[in-house]
């Protein structure tokens, strides 16, 4: 099973769990399984059309899935999938 690392701001939606084991063969299945098990995560990860939100980055290993096959990026049993919220701001 792949390991999914939940970012600190979203852990209140996963019972304060930082790592989860997920049965999935690609990123899309990984996110689907996550949101099935933890419905409160859904609005933080997916937009109204069910696509991964722009301000959520997903890495498999050290690679951004936008540089791979996006949601179809393969996930293996030894993969580490990191959910990464965009961190930004400014003074005006």
């Amino acid at each position: 099973m792949a390991t999914v690392i939940i970012p600190t701001p979203l852990r209140k939606f996963t019972g304060n769990t930082s790592r989860l084991q997920i049965h999935a063969t690609n990123v899309k299945e990984t996110v689907a399984e996550l949101t099935l098990n933890f419905p409160d995560l859904k609005k933080h990860l997916l937009d109204e059309q069910g696509n991964i939100r722009n301000f959520i980055n997903i890495f498999v290993g050290n690679d951004d899935i936008r540089d791979l096959q996006k949601e179809n990026t393969v996930v293996k049993d030894d993969s580490v999938v990191s959910i990464i919220p965009a961190i930004a701001g400014g003074n005006a």
């Binding site: 690392i5 890495f59 050290n62 990191s82 990464i84 965009a86 930004a88 701001g89 400014g90």
Partner: peptide
């Protein structure tokens, strides 16, 4: 001077 942004890979390392 008006904006900041943290690279996803830096965020990932911080969580790790």
């Amino acid at each position: 001077r008006r904006r900041f942004e943290i690279a996803p890979v830096d965020y990932m390392r911080a969580e790790q």
